[in-house]
Design a protein around this nucleic acid. Structure first.
Length: 461
DNA sequence: GCAACTGTTGCTTA
DNA sequence: CTAAGCAACAGTTG
């Protein structure tokens, strides 16, 4: 449970139960998490009394009577809690058990073993804290402005940087961006009114984090804190974990896409994130035509079919796909005939191949969008839902045509029946309920243009 | 059963 | 130098 409010909650719970208690030793069940190693730490701690429990960013600090310190970082799922003398608690994920003179124990429990504990001798510099910026609850607008002014990284990435602001993690970074009406993907220096934004960030960080502390932090996932204390701030979150649900302010569906490997939730409308339109539908429905119209309206166009073709030239993707079946790649790229046969004959192979391909495709599309976070996009994706790109899109438009076969013939297709048969695996009708709008491409082109414009207006874009 | 996802961070690689 | 990717690890969810 590890952002600033959660760590502060642990500190407040811990302090009254362990201050005044004296260490007698420790049992380490996970050697790599201690620095220095367990025997050295045990010897140093023996006989030391806990004077205070402090916090710096996401670090917990036990100040000891001789001026030495025990510092703890919980990382993803670490828990540090007090155990009364006769409590029979035991758990396979207990990593360090500190024994106390009273018979009580201090338990460090950590399923994923990401957490760390450091011991610092008296007068030693607490080096694990030395790169921390100011507390996120106590920011000066001037400082924020100075830090952001020359910053090319996306604003959310900067918020997560502990050397700039200490204590903000993924949940609260998203919440702060929402509260400040900031596009989290935008380079910090590219924010329109940076002075205003800096003041907003200073104010909202403190407000949100302190509110979260009052709620004893956020308890997300099914995770139950070992100290029996559950936070309730998850109920007050406006964007984190709410992808697909309506914004509490404007009712636009909350979107989610990756930034620096972290899921990022946001309200496209409240936060001024340019629209990402998903254009889907069956074969020869007129998706490209609609996209061309959108392009003329200022949208950047991505064709997932084109991008998928290019993926086969990307050495990284080839490496991943080769693992599934190396024989798919000859000396000169993909062996198309062989691949086609495998895809049609071998179901498990097909599933594995397509998931890998879709995942790479989605990553590529996200990359393209994030590189131009101030531009709206139209993504043509016949298999939008299968490739799980639907949450990426602020809105999804389905393009339909009454007679795709006729359209194929019109286009001069050599074997329209075969193409229709091939395309039948895309059962796009199944996904109609999940689309925000439907555009029929029958009728003249001028009419289509006005249909597209009406649709944009109706969707509030 | 497999693949993707998860609250963090720091080290390696391009 | 920066930026991205991965590793550390274990569990849950679709």
């Amino acid at each position: 449970m590890p952002e600033l409010p959660e760590v502060e909650t642990v500190r407040r719970l811990l302090k009254p139960t362990i201050v005044g208690q004296t260490f007698t030793g420790l049992v380490s069940l996970s050697p790599r998490q201690l620095d220095p190693a367990a025997p050295v730490m045990a010897k140093a701690l023996k006989g030391r009394t806990i004077k205070d429990v402090q916090r710096r960013g996401k670090f917990l600090i036990l100040a000891l009577d001789d001026g030495s310190h025990l510092v703890c970082h919980l990382r993803m799922e670490g828990k540090l809690f007090h155990l009364a003398k006769d409590d029979p608690w035991s758990d396979p994920h207990d990593r360090v058990i500190f024994t106390l003179a009273s018979g009580d124990k201090l338990i460090f429990n950590d399923t994923r073993r990401f957490g760390r504990l450091w011991y610092y001798a008296p007068k030693a510099e607490l080096s694990c804290l030395s790169n921390l910026g100011p507390e996120a609850t106590d920011l000066k607008p001037d400082y924020v402005y100075k830090k952001l002014r020359a910053e090319r990284r996306p604003i959310k990435e900067v918020l997560l940087d502990q050397s700039v602001f200490a204590g903000i993690g993924n949940i609260y970074a998203d919440e702060i961006c929402f509260a400040c009406h900031l596009n989290p993907f935008l380079p910090a220096k590219g924010i329109a009114d940076l002075e205003q934004a800096s003041a907003d960030i200073a104010r909202e960080s403190a407000r949100i984090l302190e509110l979260a502390i009052q709620s004893k932090g956020s308890t997300v996932r099914t995770y139950q804190a070992a100290n029996h204390v559950k936070g309730s701030f998850q109920d007050l979150l406006k964007v984190y974990g709410r992808a697909g649900k309506p914004c509490t302010v404007c009712h636009t569906p909350i979107c989610k896409r990756e930034l620096k490997g972290r899921g990022t939730s946001f309200c496209p409308r409240c936060q001024g994130v340019p629209a990402i339109l998903g254009i889907t539908g069956g074969i020869a429905a007129g998706k490209t035509t609609v996209c061309k119209i959108l392009e003329a309206r200022g949208f950047h166009y991505i064709s997932t079919d084109e991008e998928a073709k290019r993926l086969y030239e990307d050495p990284k993707v080839v490496k991943i796909l080769s693992k599934i079946d190396p024989a798919c790649f000859g000396k000169k790229g993909v062996d198309k005939d062989y691949l086609r046969r495998r895809l049609s004959e071998d179901k498990p192979f097909r599933r594995r191949w397509l998931t890998a391909l879709y995942s790479a495709l989605k990553e590529k599309v996200i990359h393209m969008i994030n590189n131009q976070p101030d531009k709206p996009f139209a993504i043509e994706a016949p298999l939008l839902f299968q490739a799980k790109m639907d949450t990426l899109c602020t809105r999804i438009i389905q393009v339909v045509t009454p007679d795709p076969l006729a359209r194929l013939i019109e286009r001069g297709s050599k074997n329209p029946q075969a193409q229709m048969k091939l395309a039948s695996t895309n059962d796009w009708e199944r996904y109609t309920p999940q689309c925000d709008a439907i555009i029929a491409t029958d009728g003249p082109r001028e009419l289509l243009k006005s249909k597209v414009d009406d649709c944009l207006k109706k969707l509030g874009i």
